[in-house]
Simulated assay, not measured.
Amino acid sequence: MEQRDRDELTDLIGRLGLWLDGKRFDDPRAVFTEDAEVTTPGGTSKGAGALAAQARRNHTVPTQHFVTNPLIEVDGDRAGIGANLLVVFAHEDGPRVVGERYDLQAARTPDGWRIAGVRSNVIWDLRAA
Rank of each mutant, 00 (worst) to 15 (best):
2 E>Y: 02
6 R>D: 00
8 E>G: 04
9 L>H: 01
10 T>Q: 02
11 D>C: 01
12 L>C: 07
13 I>P: 01
14 G>H: 06
16 L>H: 04
16 L>Q: 03
17 G>P: 02
17 G>Y: 02
18 L>Y: 02
20 L>I: 14
20 L>M: 10
21 D>F: 04
22 G>C: 07
24 R>P: 01
24 R>A: 03
25 F>N: 02
29 R>L: 12
33 T>C: 15
34 E>P: 11
35 D>K: 09
36 A>Y: 01
38 V>M: 07
39 T>A: 06
39 T>V: 02
40 T>R: 05
40 T>F: 09
40 T>W: 09
40 T>Q: 05
42 G>E: 01
43 G>D: 04
44 T>C: 03
45 S>K: 07
46 K>W: 00
47 G>P: 06
50 A>W: 09
51 L>K: 12
53 A>P: 03
54 Q>N: 12
56 R>M: 10
56 R>P: 09
59 H>M: 09
60 T>K: 14
61 V>C: 11
64 Q>E: 09
64 Q>L: 15
65 H>K: 14
66 F>R: 07
66 F>S: 03
67 V>N: 08
67 V>G: 02
70 P>Y: 03
70 P>Q: 08
72 I>E: 05
72 I>C: 07
72 I>W: 07
72 I>F: 06
73 E>S: 13
74 V>A: 15
76 G>Y: 12
77 D>M: 15
78 R>C: 15
79 A>T: 11
81 I>R: 04
84 N>C: 08
84 N>M: 12
85 L>D: 03
86 L>A: 13
87 V>N: 12
88 V>I: 10
89 F>N: 07
90 A>P: 04
90 A>V: 10
91 H>D: 09
92 E>Y: 02
92 E>N: 13
92 E>L: 11
92 E>F: 06
93 D>P: 12
93 D>W: 00
93 D>A: 14
94 G>M: 10
96 R>I: 06
97 V>Y: 13
98 V>P: 12
101 R>N: 06
101 R>L: 05
102 Y>M: 08
105 Q>Y: 02
106 A>F: 01
108 R>I: 00
109 T>C: 14
109 T>Q: 13
109 T>P: 14
110 P>T: 09
111 D>C: 09
113 W>G: 10
113 W>R: 14
113 W>P: 04
113 W>N: 11
114 R>K: 13
114 R>S: 03
116 A>G: 05
118 V>F: 01
119 R>T: 05
120 S>I: 08
120 S>R: 14
123 I>Q: 12
125 D>C: 13
127 R>K: 12
128 A>I: 03
129 A>T: 08
129 A>I: 02
129 A>F: 01
